[in-house]
């Protein structure tokens, strides 16, 4: 849990944003206890039955805003994904995509990859989240499990620098091929140029504000 004050990183009397009095608490939801409610118990039970290493593979189960998130250790990601897809009582046939998240403050867990799964057979959704250190940003590719994540993994690589081992062609998809850095990381500068007006210069946004 952390607290932030104001907005746009402006402090002191120079704050003309109107948000100087704003205080927000950020809460990271912790591990949930059974019963999870809804179909979440059933999904967890079935996964535990079909995947005996459940305890070693799943760091924690989080129910937040009525959504189920399984935090998976990356060594077991591929096996968990295959089990979720193949087991008859689970049948998560679709992966809606891969998202990257950057938490620069979480030591050795800076990068997260998030997979949204959908079971068309049972009309259920599950989210898998994998944390990995910035110093070793490797993940097994899930292209062979769900072919549709091919471009999503390329995008996550492009934007966050997560390297998906075993991907058939892991190249940049949005930025130019010779681009340096990964733009969606929190420490990536926004860039921009100072804008000249008549008799005045306005510095680029990244020097006027910090985005959080």
């Amino acid at each position: 849990m952390s607290e932030s004050k104001g907005s746009f990183g402006v402090a002191g009397s120079g704050d003309t944003s109107g948000y100087s009095g704003l205080v927000r608490t950020k809460v990271t939801p912790g591990s949930s206890e059974r019963p999870f409610g809804g179909y979440f118990d059933e999904v967890a039970d079935e996964l535990e039955r079909a995947f005996p290493e459940f305890g070693a593979a799943i760091e924690k189960v989080v129910i937040d805003r009525n959504e189920l998130t399984l935090y998976v250790k990356r060594d077991h990601l591929r096996a968990v994904a295959l089990t979720l897809r193949n087991t008859e009582s689970l049948r998560f046939e679709m992966c809606m995509g891969v998202n990257g998240v950057h938490y620069p403050d979480e030591k050795d867990r800076e990068l997260h990859a998030v997979y949204e799964l959908l079971s068309l057979t049972h009309n259920r959704r599950v989210r898998l989240e994998v944390a990995l250190p910035d110093s070793d940003p490797h993940l097994p590719s899930l292209v062979e499990v769900w072919g549709g994540v091919n471009w999503h993994e390329r995008e996550t690589f492009d934007m966050f620098g997560i390297i998906f081992d075993g991907h058939p062609g892991l190249t940049r998809i949005l930025m130019p091929d010779d681009w340096q850095g990964h733009p969606q990381r929190k420490d990536y500068p926004l860039g921009g140029i100072p804008v000249e007006y008549k008799g005045a210069t306005i510095p680029p946004p990244s020097e006027r504000r910090t985005y959080r």
Binding site: M175, P183, P189, L190, G191, G192, I193, V195, P204, P205, S206
Partner: peptide, 9 residues
């Protein structure tokens, strides 16, 4: 002029 997109991209 780049408009509202004053950034790296």
């Amino acid at each position: 002029s780049g408009g509202m997109f004053n950034n790296y991209a």
